[in-house]
């Protein structure tokens, strides 16, 4: 079970992400991602939309697998910019490690 925080997409704006809710989870990003790893980045984007913060922190290592090739952003039909969302989530996770996420 995971707790959700529906205000999380808004909180992510502080980390440079304002397209969290643009994604409609079609899975194009996961299909083109060269990592071919457990629905990356689709799954973690879904966590962000739902505000499943604990899940994001637990599975945060996934975020650093991304090479920023830009394929997901290039192909996203919703222009949700998944690449930038991953970068924003990295910032969020680092801020959590350092205890500055709440500032």
């Amino acid at each position: 079970m995971a707790l959700v925080d529906l205000e999380f997409p808004e909180q992510l704006e502080r980390f440079g992400v304002d397209t969290t809710l643009e994604c409609f989870n079609c899975g194009t990003c996961a299909a083109v991602c060269p990592l071919i790893h457990e629905h990356f980045p689709r799954k973690i984007i879904r966590y962000a939309q739902l505000g499943a913060k604990e899940r994001i922190l637990q599975e945060s290592d996934e975020l650093w697998r991304c090479l920023h090739c830009g394929l997901c952003t290039y192909t996203c039909p919703r222009e949700a910019d998944p690449g930038e969302l991953i970068l924003g989530l990295r910032r969020y996770v680092i801020a959590n490690w350092r205890g500055t996420a709440h500032v």
Binding site: F15, L63, H68, L87, L89, R90, R91, V93, I94
Partner: peptide
């Protein structure tokens, strides 16, 4: 004056 730009920190998410 030829410094490293810091871009790796940006890519890794260490924005501060």
């Amino acid at each position: 004056l030829d410094y490293y730009s810091g871009v790796l920190l940006y890519d890794l998410g260490d924005i501060d």
